[in-house]
Design a protein around this nucleic acid. Sequence first.
DNA 1: ATTAAAAATTAACACGCGTAAAATTTTATC
DNA 2: GATAAAATTTTACGCGTGTTAATTTTTAAT
Lengths: 341, 341
Amino acid sequence: MSDNKIKNMEDFAAVSGLSRPTVSKYFNDPNSVRSSTRDRIEAALQKYDFHPNIYAMNQNRKLTNNVGIVVPYLSDPVFAELARKVEENCILAGFRPTLFSAHGQPRLEVEILDGLRLLKPSGVLIAPLGRTPNRAVIEKFCADVPTVLFDSFLPDTGLGFAGSNNPQFAHLIVDYLCRTGEYPSFLEMRTPANPNANRRRQAYIAAMENLGFEPSIVKIDGEGWAFEEIGRSGGGKALLEKQFATNTILCSNDRLAIGFLTACYENQIRVGRGPDCDIRVAGMDDHPFSRFTCPPLTTVAQDFESVAKEAVSILVASIEGREISKPSTFFDGRLVMRESA
Amino acid sequence: MSDNKIKNMEDFAAVSGLSRPTVSKYFNDPNSVRSSTRDRIEAALQKYDFHPNIYAMNQNRKLTNNVGIVVPYLSDPVFAELARKVEENCILAGFRPTLFSAHGQPRLEVEILDGLRLLKPSGVLIAPLGRTPNRAVIEKFCADVPTVLFDSFLPDTGLGFAGSNNPQFAHLIVDYLCRTGEYPSFLEMRTPANPNANRRRQAYIAAMENLGFEPSIVKIDGEGWAFEEIGRSGGGKALLEKQFATNTILCSNDRLAIGFLTACYENQIRVGRGPDCDIRVAGMDDHPFSRFTCPPLTTVAQDFESVAKEAVSILVASIEGREISKPSTFFDGRLVMRESA
DNA sequence: ATTAAAAATTAACACGCGTAAAATTTTATC
DNA sequence: GATAAAATTTTACGCGTGTTAATTTTTAAT
């Protein structure tokens, strides 16, 4: 640990008895130098702990080691989990991921993308907010920077996509609910913050018609990302006004369901599938807290791990110049039966 | 938008009819040039949309625009919220914040700090994991990089600290619970992931003794950051074994309380302050989800906004060379009365 | 031991911008 | 309009690394 004034690669090359270009080669790919050379460098690294200046590196390199990860709303535990797994996979693939959240604001999403351009990243993984005005911005961005979309699909944009098979989610839970009791009414926001909501609604309708039932959708007011509060107030109002066609409610997502469960509690409506219960409630996503609601929420679990892995693997393939065999993958969800339905 | 091959500041200076050093001055501080000059540059910016290469900038600048934000666990919505507000305040202060989560792993916390050194940030805001083996690492880091701690206090470390007055939290809620009913037993993890837990326990003891009651603490097993599950399983076990001295349970934090509420539900124990209820439950933090538990959780709200603002303001003061009048600030919590207690 | 191939060295330029000193121009003051 | 002050230009060097071409050294194969 005698780091005697090793200020740059020049100095470090000197103390390791090599030339700077050789050392530079090593840092760009340790396997590009002879193993005996590699050993000398690594021995010197132990003694002097030198780190190349990343700004000087990135200034000249065609490809930085940076990867940007952008999610619409990091305070939403579903996205926090997804982002965590994407980050993990990026690190495993040898990248330096940087995490960004649009905090639900389209303006911020644009700013993040602008900032990312300056970082000259090797690639970007983005779960778009999905708001119409930003579609063009994201398309433009994808044209400039190797970008993989995840979670929320945009047609003909980016290198590829990995996300959930939202229609399958709705079919799965609708089938389950119908099989085990009354057919479900659907609860959602009138203007969903996330475009996956639309696919889930459409699949709900299709699944219902498939089984010969009349779809029944209750749309509640509320803007933004405070889904629980929207589910509570809007869902409570819908309950009081008896807007639901049946006593089985399928919520567009778990966060909405969590708020709706609170509304049920406030109105002394017993939730569950027991004989003494008034109503069944189900969601979609398998939000980290869904297991801890009262009663625990029946839902469809997203396969975060597969989504994250696939998204990163598309990016890696593209960066390494390989063909992308399957640009878009939609992973099936898994039914999670708990006590709420 | 006729961006005709403007590749660097040289080119851009040419098309704006100025010299490169003047343009460079402008980008480092628009007010450092004459207003007529500023206008010419900004007019040219409209036409050519040039952005200085941040790698070249940061290579030579004494101070980069970067600020690192490090939190122990981003999937915990309490930290997600806190991080969001810190980020917001950094942007307002003119910085480029980058967010990192240690994901509860001390090893990752060290790696993040190592990575941050390379970024040569103007400053770092860190909420330490608080695990003993990392204390030395963080102290060393603080000696090298201007660093402000938040949320979790470490004595004699960094430029300053902003966090919650955890002892006051416990006093506040203990007083409330004693005033409105039976005195509380305390539920916590045997080996808390977060060091604030220790301050809360000590303050619970002090508050109880202050009021002439015998403190009663139930410690439950469980490692890691899955607090809800630990609260559910450990709390449920404690309930069955009748470990609690009273029927009022104060949980060390909201996430533990959320899990404990689930345990109560599973054991058909009615939670609340009504005459038909069996038990009262309270937490600390005001977790975003606490308003939506069944029943809604009585708790003490952290003043995230003040903590974030103060932490950033300490950093800004230090960077601008001003005296830091008050290095450590502990913000009081606000009692949030809901139905659980 | 000879020879071809692989790896390392040397020398040099490039990247894009910060910054400093001296010379020049512009602006403000009286 | 003269003078001082402020802003800008010119010139030049520095930052730490990537990268390339020509040369030398080392390794592997015969």
